[in-house]
């Protein structure tokens, strides 16, 4: 028996802001503006979070700078009722799904109450261990399929995550059971200090899907239209019973791995500089300018609005009372054991 596959790829919007009209998803002008505004808001949040960390006002933070198109373009393709399993860098996914920004800051300051998703939103807390959320998403999609509720599960991870057993085992199961799940790999070229070429000998990461019996596609991860289109199609396929898809968003981590990292020690400045013209925000701006959707005044307005929203979120997060010490015991189990109850009482 011979098996063959083709590595699919998709790119719509180039660095000059020119879109391939034959591939362009149908997006009304207002939606395009909303995408741009979400990008600016996410970047404003990201910059503020980095400052807050440096000032000691939140803990270690993982910046998503440069990955806004991968995150926003994909998140827009999901319904609020879908099950989203992020890793630790997906702040723009949270923001796009409507997660309150003050709660994100609350989480990054170490307060687990910030991880309680608001009612009606099935987005899971930040998953710090690499790739362990992949089987969880598969399980959620299995439950959705069993309950027949039409929800789709989505899982985010990075290039590093594809080396984990959880990735192989989880995707294998998703393929075997033909589950409604979309895997989004943000290949940002670096897993902390390990470059993509040292992560896998596969030419693309998306081709791994074929060994699990479903389709994979590599998209330009800095092209919000390509990411949105590929994800929308994967979601439609999953909801219609067509099984899983692996989407590789080819992008770049412009920032350090986290605030605890210094990437200048292991990657060249030239490499980082070479990605700057590929910036997802820049090319969307150029596209909008050509279409008459962008001008300086609009930019200023969006920036102002974003800054105000982020400042409000910071104020709200910092005005919250710290968690009670008893919370430590309160949430270890759904109901405490007698010994825990006693420990809580004696605390």
């Amino acid at each position: 028996m011979t098996a063959s596959f083709e590595v699919k790829s998709l790119s719509i919007l180039n660095e000059k802001g020119e879109a391939d009209e034959t591939l362009m998803p149908s997006l009304p002008d207002d939606d395009i503006k909303r995408i741009f505004e979400l990008m600016v808001l996410s970047r404003t949040f990201d910059e503020a979070a980095l400052s807050l960390q440096r000032e000691g006002r939140i803990g270690t933070y993982a910046s998503m700078l440069g990955q806004e198109a991968s995150q926003i373009g994909s998140a827009l393709a999901f319904e609020k009722s879908d099950w989203i399993f992020p890793s630790f860098r997906e702040m723009a996914v949270y923001i796009t799904m409507g997660y309150p920004m003050y709660m994100l800051l609350q989480y990054w300051s170490g307060d687990e109450r910030g991880a309680r998703a608001p009612a009606g939103l099935n987005i899971f807390p930040v998953c710090v261990p690499v790739g362990t959320q992949i089987p969880h998403a598969v399980g959620a999609s299995m439950a959705a399929k069993y309950k027949g509720d039409k929800a789709v599960a989505c899982c985010y991870f990075g290039d590093g995550g594809t080396s984990k057993g959880d990735f192989h085992e989880g995707l294998n199961m998703a393929g075997v059971f033909k589950l409604p799940v979309v895997f989004i790999c943000q290949n940002n070229q670096w897993a902390i200090s390990v470059p993509r070429r040292r992560q896998s000998a596969s030419k693309t990461l998306s081709q791994k899907a074929y060994s699990y019996g479903f389709e994979g596609i590599q998209v330009d991860g800095n092209d919000v239209f390509a990411v949105y289109k590929a994800t929308s199609e994967a979601v439609r396929k999953a909801r219609g019973g067509g099984g899983p898809t692996l989407i590789e968003c080819f992008t770049y981590r412009m920032s350090d791995h986290t605030t605890a990292d210094d990437s200048s020690k292991y990657r060249s400045n030239e490499e980082v500089e070479s990605w700057k013209p590929k910036d997802p925000l820049l090319r969307l701006k150029l596209f909008m300018e050509k279409k008459g959707l962008w001008n300086e005044q609009y930019q200023k307005g969006v920036e102002e609005k974003s800054k105000t929203a982020v400042e409000q979120a910071i104020r709200k997060a910092e005005s919250l009372s710290p968690p009670e010490p008893a919370d430590m015991f309160r949430y270890a189990l759904k109901s405490p054991t007698p010994r825990q109850a006693k420990e809580m009482e004696d605390f």
């Binding site: 099935n122 362990t132 089987p135 399980g139 959880d166 989880g170 294998n172 199961m173």
Partner: peptide, 24 residues
């Protein structure tokens, strides 16, 4: 409701966790 799984104890547990947190 009663089924076998590929031999992947870790992912199988993760899948069960995912199903459990979504109501099963």
């Amino acid at each position: 409701r009663v089924f076998d799984m590929p031999i992947s104890e870790n992912a199988m547990t993760g899948v069960a966790i995912g199903a459990a947190i979504s109501g099963m």
